[in-house]
Simulated assay, not measured.
Amino acid sequence: MVDAAALDWIVRLGDPAFEDWDGFTAWLEADPRHAERYHALEADAADLATLVPAPAQGMPAIAPRASSRRGLWISGAFAASVAAIAGYGVLQNRADPYGIETAPGETRTVALADGTSIALNGGSRVILDHRDSRIATLERGEAYFMVRHDADRPFRVKAGEDELLDVGTAFDVARDGAGIRVGVAEGAVLFNPSGEKVRLEAGQGLLSNGRSIRLAEVSPESVGGWRQGTLDYDGAPLEQVSADLSRALGHRIAVAPAIATRSFRGTISLDVVRDDPARLGPLLNVRIRRNGDGWEITPLP
């Protein structure tokens, strides 16, 4: 591994008796990543070296020896490398986040190292960690989590100020400006384990807007239904329906304020309306028409 070799060179270069300059130069020139990782770890080592306590009073000092010209080039590296080796485990435990996102109308499934998989709906972004496959942050949009349960290391999902803890679970989380929605298909999740501690079993859902929490019954089969091309609702406001349609279809679909809170019960087949959202009009009992580069849901005349 490049990091292991770089650390080995840091230690060796810190030895006053070091002579293998040709070998070190050859290693640096063999791959551009070698120099990059060497200097990055040397900088980390220098930072960690500041944490090493000074010699206790009364301890014998080590007499300095004359340094060679090349030795001056890495002056102080040996002390830093000692700290680097002692603290390298800390460095390895640092978060290493990366983002996965989808465009509106696009879906994607990500397999994690622990066996968990995450399906992303359109217009969504999730932050993961290369060094910890048991945590995810939903920045926006919607994701369906199929979690491999580990009682010793439960999977955590963060969405804004809220957090979900898996209890052997398949569940869906949607996050938008109105808050978050959760639906559980299998197992159970714990909502805000450090706060409200609301346990949701399969067939239960939750809506949170940051001020209040509302529980609801859901059909386990309908949770994450967008993955199979359907959206199921039981009294959802049209503003939620329009947001879901925008994600899934890749079209901007707005709803007139006058009917934004009107509730809808029914099932929408995404394939039927993908190319022409206006076909939804009769089902929603509204008028849907073009508005610029998107669509608008308005009351019937």
Rank of each mutant, 00 (worst) to 15 (best):
H39V: 08
L41V: 00
L41S: 01
L41Q: 00
D44W: 07
A45H: 04
A46Q: 14
A46R: 15
A46V: 14
A46H: 13
D47M: 08
D47I: 08
L48F: 11
L48E: 05
L48N: 03
L48Q: 05
A49F: 08
V52L: 13
P53Q: 04
A54T: 13
P55K: 06
A56C: 08
M59V: 13
A61Y: 05
A61P: 04
I62K: 09
P64D: 07
P64M: 04
S67C: 07
S68P: 02
R69Q: 12
R70D: 13
G71L: 02
W73P: 01
I74R: 07
G76A: 03
F78I: 10
F78C: 06
A79Q: 14
A80P: 04
A80Y: 06
V82K: 12
A83R: 00
A84Y: 08
A84T: 08
A86G: 03
A86M: 05
G89H: 06
L91G: 10
Q92C: 09
R94M: 10
A95Q: 14
A95F: 09
D96A: 15
D96I: 10
D96Q: 15
P97I: 07
P97A: 07
I100F: 08
E101H: 11
T102S: 01
T102L: 01
A103M: 09
P104N: 12
G105A: 08
G105F: 07
G105Q: 09
G105D: 10
E106H: 02
T109L: 06
V110N: 04
A111L: 10
D114H: 03
G115R: 02
G115C: 03
S117I: 10
S117V: 11
I118R: 01
A119L: 06
A119D: 02
G123L: 02
S124P: 02
S124H: 00
R125Y: 06
R125S: 05
V126F: 01
I127N: 11
L128C: 01
D129F: 03
D129C: 06
